[in-house]
Amino acid sequence: MTKLIPHPLLSLTLLLVWLLLTRFSLGQLVLGSAVALVAGGAMSTLEPEKTRLRRPLLLPGYVLRILRDVLVSNYDVARQIVTNAPRRPGFVEIPMELQDRNALALLAIIFTAMPGTAWIEYDRARSVLTLHAFDLDGQQDWPGFIKQRYEKPLLEILG
């Protein structure tokens, strides 16, 4: 199983994208599966770092929460740009427990996609993350907020 399909999630996603781009039919299903399997095999020769999801069932809730937070953050930043209200932009340093590279990449995408925060740098030697906040006064305790709301659920999912 693991020999034949080394990256099941990647292959499944590729197959889904293939079916979305073409009209669904049996022929496309077969062709898409072939492409997905070959691409998965090609990926395994690159030997990426594997991440094992211990509790994948928690993932949908996490994704929904992020979509909601991005929406709220969108509204906040839009209001601040339109009203030009006084605010205090600045950098925040956060000590991280998360070590997994793939999870950190995911966090980078989440924080950059959120309009209120931008991922600037991650120092692997000290495992300290530097964020830029659009409004520092938006949160009382930035490191605590980030760790509690985004890092801890990821640590739980990875187990």
């Binding site: 991005v70 929406l71 930043v77 740009i81 950059t112 996609a113 959120m114 309009p115 209120g116 659009f134």
Partner: peptide, 10 residues
């Protein structure tokens, strides 16, 4: 750098 993400998320 925060501004374009408004357009690209929702």
């Amino acid at each position: 750098i925060h501004a374009p993400t408004l357009g690209t998320s929702w």
